[in-house]
Design a binder for these strands. Structure first.
Lengths: 122, 122
DNA sequence: TGCTCATTTGCGTCACTATGCAAATGATAC
DNA sequence: GTATCATTTGCATAGTGACGCAAATGAGCA
């Protein structure tokens, strides 16, 4: 973590290291967890573990685990009501995180600094 | 993939299923790949595999593989110059993807529709 | 208290992924 | 052509993660 390949413009890339957290992507790298997130987002209302499990081919315990992982990553919130636990999407947080990533990457290398013929976005 | 837990407002969540691709997160779920992306972003200029490998504790072949995975995911571009391959960040694409995700999630459930006492973003 | 339902956790198994080494491929220089 | 350098690929191994089942925990109710 000491030498950089070419230049050392760490300063211009505002906090990209802090924003691009592996934990966030780790939580979302599983297809089933993405599916759960999408379902929960589409549902809009908080859903219990059982409700979520009804849509999944996997065991309820697995769904519970997946939801917990998403919760620990700050993507979902859990709220206990009676004997049920209702999970819901942390919309604002999630949106803010994604935008912060986009901003950090954009700030990192503004269009003018891009290399010619290298990062063509077809 | 047929029944939804509570409601079925699939229409309001503009293409969240298309935007939240597991493949994207899968590519970024490895800490070493995140580190490579950060380094490459901070570097701004395209870097060869050897240059990138100099900063990593892992074998050069591993770095090559990681870069290929990021390239296949559309996060990096590879450009061959002589016997070297220079990788660079697809800034615009990456930023666009992240913003699209944020937009899709935001559109999915605007603040007014949020459940009271459920998705508090403290 | 005992019972039932919802969720979580322990644990063994299976699949996948990351890793390092060595060999293969591709490209330039001699 | 051969030699050399950069990168990729094949392969074996080790580590990690997902999964299902069963048991444990927690909460309400009779």
């Amino acid at each position: 973590m000491s030498k950089q390949p070419d230049s050392d413009n760490t300063s211009c890339c505002g906090g990209i290291e802090d924003v691009l957290e592996p934990g966030f992507f780790k939580a979302l790298c599983d297809p089933n967890r993405i599916a759960l997130l999408i379902r929960l987002a589409q549902c809009c209302d908080p859903c219990s573990v059982s409700q979520m499990a009804r849509c999944c081919p996997t065991d309820l315990s697995v769904v519970s685990r997946h939801l917990a992982i998403l919760r620990d990553a700050g993507i979902l919130t859990a709220q206990k009501r009676g004997k049920e636990v209702f999970y819901s999407v942390r919309y604002s947080e999630l949106v803010r995180t994604l935008r912060a990533m986009a901003d950090a990457i954009e700030t990192c290398c503004p269009p003018g600094r891009e290399q010619p013929g290298s990062q063509r976005d077809e």
